[in-house]
Amino acid sequence: MPNMVGNKPLKTTLLYILAFSVLIVMVSPYLFMVLGSLSPWDEVDRRIIPTELTLRSYEWLFFGGEGVLARPWLRALFNSLFVTLSSTVLMMATAILVGYSLAKLKFRGNRLINNVILFQMFYPAVILLIPLFLIIRYLGLYDTYWAMILPKAVNLWAIFMYTNFFRSLPDELLEAAKMDGASQLKIVWKVVLPMSKSITTIIFLFLFMERWVELLWDMLVVNSENMLTLNVLLAQMFGPYGGYPGPMYAASVLLTMPILVLFIIFSKNFKNGMQFVLK
């Protein structure tokens, strides 16, 4: 950095070359995964760039191979999408309602709830793991979608974020809408939410990402093969089928692509939205 004055264009070019090289390094595991999934089987893990591309790994994944039955990978992908979406939508809805009530509806007990939420956020969740599992079992929810969705239907961090954000919205605006006779629910939907687009995008992305890669809980509460999420199925298959790296890469691609695509679609306002979350 020092003594580069007068060499500005050169310095800038070097910076971009460096930034681009780092970018390649950061995304190389993804490239490795995609190339591995498309490689002929005798080249998987043996060559970085395959000599030809083939879909054999994906075929094996969906239709099985000699002596190996196909596993329900597509069903697992559906399970992952269904569980993650339901859980994320519920977390968003509850966070918006609870956040709004804590920030804008001044009622007795409001501050108490706020403090309890803060306490819960810092309370180590690991202690609850075993009793939560037992509750699911006693409620008869073991091996159902409910077991994966209900305990992850409320997210404290999202409530906290929305509460703080809604507090920063001017009261006058809401009062005006109220004068026009709008109900509180309508105010949330028509006035508050449109003003919260960037933070909503970021919170949604974070909740979705976190839910998508959950392993331990989904592994515990679900047992039958048709109920497993893609992440769990892949983790379980990796042991016995580690000798078939090609299909394992194909399944990894299946697991990674939806979330990459989702993220890239919403990434336009990523940096601005993050600024609020990181504060």
Binding site: Y30, M33, G36, L234, A235, P245, Y249, S252, F263
Partner: peptide, 16 residues
């Protein structure tokens, strides 16, 4: 982007 990776998928890549 790496933050999006599932630990399962990255473990498989590292293993390879």
């Amino acid at each position: 982007l790496p933050y999006l990776a599932s630990g399962v998928a990255s473990a498989i890549v590292v293993n390879g």
